[in-house]
Design a protein around this nucleic acid. Structure first.
Lengths: 233, 233
DNA sequence: ACGCTGCTGAACTCATGCGTTCATTCTAGA
DNA sequence: TCTAGAATGAACGCATGAGTTCAGCAGCGT
């Protein structure tokens, strides 16, 4: 997303390129950098390697620009998360869930701490009051849908006896909470880049606690023994 | 905080009042309502029942105004949280931790879903890029200090055998995560007012899961039996 | 009664930035 | 090669709002 635009395509051959996409990418980059109010359309145009009137010919408004840019970024992020969650499907349902969940947690942690996700969180929080419908879309795409997808997977694990009988929606919610809550505080509201080691430690701690609370009888003793050192961060 | 200013003291007797406090309260109210960039000093002055030059005579800048208003709100919020956490101290350390933690969770949930806390989260997220030091102060006051305070209490519970041996800092972190994560998603990024019933249910679910993961051997069977219905929200 | 101090309100300057206009230039396609 | 449509860039009008100025006014101590 921002990686493509951050190389400042100043010298696009001026002819036919996919200007619209370039503009939306640039818009997200600049909004992420400055925030909605502080971002000016001129800078977006420059970032996209395009003239200001061109921007207005594609997207009528600064607000429209913002909405489309944010929604595109949301979609990309959702897809990433669903892919990582979907990897659970490939696992044998009766395998030890510890390894599978650790992989999952680590994958999700990497996504949540990536620049796009952090920027998106800042932007949607900031404009939650001004564009309440966007806040709703955001929750839907970044929280509810991934949670539902995870709940499906956890339900299967539960049936297979790897997790105790429980409400899978709530289990998924708690899984995400244990993972993203600590990450949130470690990234200083998305301000700071979380080092990979911390990220891994946080993910493991989350899985540990999650399994202590949700592991099925079959797994309990094993898990409890394994995660007994206090911490490591 | 905002309750004093929300009654629009349009007709202050013009003479000596604590203008400065009125201004800071009004500033927080207006910033919370509009966001930093959209808030205008004129509106803050009106909300405080004061003329615009008076505002500038007390606080030199819009930025200064913002910082002082936010920090005052942060302090108030921190004190509230510490008070609620401090109530754990009064409990007998060998008593069943379930009741104590539920009280705590419920108290914290009420604070975190209150208008000041939600507004504060929106504001600091929004301006995290522009005023990074404020983001740090915010984390310190709203996360680290309360977590440290809770960790102290949990350490005592652990020593008393009510919780299993564990890193109290991490236990506290997970406790907060299990509580505030779900609350966050239920309040739609602070946009929506969470109904009391949901709030209570979330708090109980958080304590449930927390105790399943952290209860000491003495408590394990009891807790596990008690929280066995899937959910309730 | 007098003047000092702090507040008022209205008007002002100035910077910023949205959205638009227009004459010009480029590219694609016939 | 010629033409239509898209893109350019530079300038413009206009609104908004930060921060300031200033003449007047209320209260208060003396």
């Amino acid at each position: 997303m921002s990686s493509a635009a951050s190389s400042r395509p100043k010298s696009v051959p001026r002819g036919r390129v996919d200007k619209r996409k370039a503009i939306l990418d640039a818009a997200f980059t600049v909004f992420a950098r400055r925030g909605y109010a502080q971002a000016c359309v001129q800078e977006i145009a420059e970032e996209a390697g395009v003239a200001k009137p061109t921007v207005y010919s594609h997207l009528s408004d600064k607000e429209t620009l913002f909405r489309h840019a944010v929604e595109a970024a949301l979609d990309a992020l959702l897809e990433e998360k669903l892919t990582v969650i979907g990897r659970l499907r490939a696992r044998a349902p009766d395998e030890d869930p510890h390894a599978a969940l650790t992989d999952l947690a680590h994958g999700l942690a990497r996504i949540c701490c990536g620049e796009p996700a952090r920027a998106l969180r800042r932007l949607t929080y900031a404009q939650a009051a001004q564009f309440p419908d966007l806040a709703e879309t955001t929750q839907e795409r970044t929280v509810h849908r991934p949670r539902a997808a995870l709940a499906d997977r956890l339900a299967r694990l539960s049936l297979a006896g790897a997790l105790r009988p429980c409400d899978p929606e709530q289990a998924a919610e708690h899984f995400f909470a244990l993972l993203t809550g600590p990450l949130e505080s470690r990234s200083l509201l998305g301000t700071r880049r979380v080092p990979a080691a911390e990220l891994r430690g946080t993910a493991e701690a989350a899985v540990d606690t999650f399994l202590r609370a949700y592991a099925g009888d079959r797994q309990l003793s094993q898990t409890t023994a394994e995660g007994d050192r206090p911490d490591g961060s």
